[in-house]
Design a protein around this nucleic acid. Structure first.
Lengths: 303, 303
DNA sequence: TCTGTGGTATGCGTGATTGTCATGGACTTG
DNA sequence: CAAGTCCATGACAATCACGCATACCACAGA
């Protein structure tokens, strides 16, 4: 019943689990078996004298004790990282910002911001990675990201209910748009009426369970016909260009639509607004991260 | 060659070693064998990819890599402590200040300051412990003390040459004094001439090696006759009272001399000045520690 | 209802870690 | 030189932590 008996590997495993959300995927990421991870977590819980994870059907969630330990684990592991670098004679890793982003931000917003930043602040290194909203939020909380671009749909709930609440900043609020092949009859006008969407073929994202179906215009009162599913935006848009179906795109992607695709607004239904948020842990923002946030704001506004 | 492979026990052992100055005493303190400590250090050095300790005849000293690791180790272990407390539901240990002191400060200065503090700031808990200058300095650097009272003699060199240098503040500078039995011929005057010290019997502290002989008036050109040696101040002063010999006392002790002992200045020789310093790690001083420092300053001045 | 598919826990055997004990080497001091 | 300090290391034992296989649980879908 004393965290003192914890081990560094235990903490590392725990952080990975907190970030991935399941023991199994954490194990895969660490090159362990699921069994080893399960044991490490059990040992850490024994050391902490409290349950750290709430086992649920679809994985695990942190308990409040779990959050306490996660915060410590992140601090401890960062400290060790810093010492490792210092021992290796490298300068303190102060100029690197780790940024996470949701898939649609990767086409336009992210490259534009990073490019601008490289010109204006060449000393800042930005490393980024893509992820879903829950994955990005967990990564923020596990301390493996500094900033995360996430998207949010009405009713614009915060991405998690943990404490402390994440610091959120709305970068943009735009309407959801529709991608149609230029050869498609709907492509002739400057907008599409929602009634015209009946009976169309759709190109959807992998519906990973609880997530609402992405790619199909929301609120249709029919069962949509899914012609193709694809995770990748380029694939989806090329499928659209090839006339295989329609799909929804966020406004931040419109500028990157390939030839053969028209991006149009939809009239008629309720306004389908989407927000682009910049999320981070509360607290003071280090200088380089603030510059990155600034560049992201600029990139959003210039689009 | 990666500190990542270090273990928490390794770091804990290393901190203890850094604080004690020898593997052997660290082992005793931790309840390990010297051999186990040696192996832990070896493992940590292997993980760090650098030698952390410089082995010397009288123990070990930290190398520069060792200081890097020590700073990290202290931070990591403190972090774990904090998490342990938080898990146990205790409030953050913000109101406790750990103060170290040199033996002569224990009689008057320390009790006075602590008593005053308990009246003026009852919320602050002060835990203290006695130690030699090197032990206190090591404890500061290992993060197991917040403040340390140390004494310093000319040429008033800093207590260690490590980096970053300790923050030092001179609380008082006073002359060394002489304790004589009231029954002793020298006790009749208001001061003693250095010439009168020839041939006297002395009560000295344990001369633990390199330390200069404590208790005997410095600079005598004869080999002093040591009648008794004692570590404890009460014992030494009672021996003086019993007429067994003379000894030197710091001015901060004068007020606590028992009956039967007179404390007198010495004329003639070079001025034997002694400073009382308050030492701490550089950097911002947390609020409660600042209050303790203030109380110590006040206690010195009111004496 | 049965079966497949996510996920986590656990019994068992094995190899690596991490201790103790005992010993040895380098050095200082009386 | 003998005795004391200190640290390092070979031999051994106990424990730990892993992988494997399997059990378990909840849910989804035919």
């Amino acid at each position: 019943m004393d965290l003192q008996e914890a081990s560094l590997v235990g903490l590392r495993v725990f952080r990975e689990v907190a970030e991935r959300g399941t023991l199994t995927s954490a194990a895969a990421a660490l090159g362990y078996t699921q069994s080893a991870v399960s044991r490490q977590i059990a040992a850490l819980e024994r050391a902490a004298g409290a349950q750290l994870l709430e086992r649920r059907r679809e994985g695990v969630r942190l308990t409040s004790a779990g959050h306490v330990v996660l915060r410590s684990a992140a601090a401890v592991l960062d400290q060790i990282d810093a010492a490792t670098r210092e021992l290796a004679g490298l300068p303190a890793e102060g100029g690197t910002v780790r940024l996470g982003w949701f898939a649609s931000a990767g086409a336009v917003l992210l490259p534009r911001a990073v490019a601008a930043l490289r010109r204006s602040h060449p000393a800042i290194t930005v490393t980024t990675r893509e992820g879903t909203t829950p994955a990005l939020v967990r990564a923020l909380r596990a301390g493996s990201l500094d900033l995360a671009l996430i998207s949010s749909a009405p009713p614009f709930r915060p991405p998690d209910a943990e404490s402390p609440p994440l610091a959120l900043q709305v970068l943009a609020e735009r309407s959801l748009l529709l991608a149609v092949p230029v050869s498609h009859p709907l492509a002739s006008g400057d907008s599409v009426d929602i009634a015209q969407l009946h009976g169309q073929s759709w190109i959807a994202a992998q519906s990973t369970g609880a997530d609402q179906l992405m790619g199909v215009w929301p609120g249709l009162d029919e069962r949509p016909r899914i012609a193709h599913t694809a995770r990748d935006w380029l694939a989806k848009l090329q499928l659209v260009a090839a006339g295989c179906g329609l799909t929804t795109v966020s406004a931040s992607l419109a500028a990157a639509a390939p030839p053969g695709v028209r991006v149009l607004p939809v009239r008629g239904g309720p306004r389908e607004r989407r927000r682009v948020l910049l999320a981070r842990l509360p607290g003071p923002l280090p200088e380089p991260a603030a510059r990155v946030a600034e560049a992201l704001r600029a990139a959003v506004e210039s689009g």
